[in-house]
Design a protein around this nucleic acid. Sequence first.
DNA 1: TAATTGACCCTTT
DNA 2: CAAAGGGCCAATT
Length: 113
Amino acid sequence: MTNNENYQRIWKTVLQIPSGKVASYGQVADLAGLPGRARLVGRALGYAPPALAVPWYRVLRSDRSIAFAAGSDHATTQRQLLLSEGVMVKNNRVAKQYCWQPDLAELLFSLEF
DNA sequence: TAATTGACCCTTT
DNA sequence: CAAAGGGCCAATT
């Protein structure tokens, strides 16, 4: 992995997602300062060290569906984790109301101004 | 070195 | 909403 710095930023951004809310890969990429690099977010989550406790399950596709194949072990685990936070999952997809809308103040704080 | 492969996204049909 | 076509980029083959 040659871009460890990008991974760090992605992990930090995902850690900003509050419990009970979800964000898309593209959204995380944008907030992390990596526009158009949603795929990198998915890769970063796969490489995420367990020690950081990154809430990877709060990251969904842009259509708010779970990124893994429906019925797969990963998808089932993710659905379970989301349900435990009160996020209802219907047909491998969640409702709009759970989308995280980051606060400007929150963003400025994470950017360490 | 070149081709393939993804935990993806956007626009158009 | 689903499907197709084009982009993106690091890691793997």
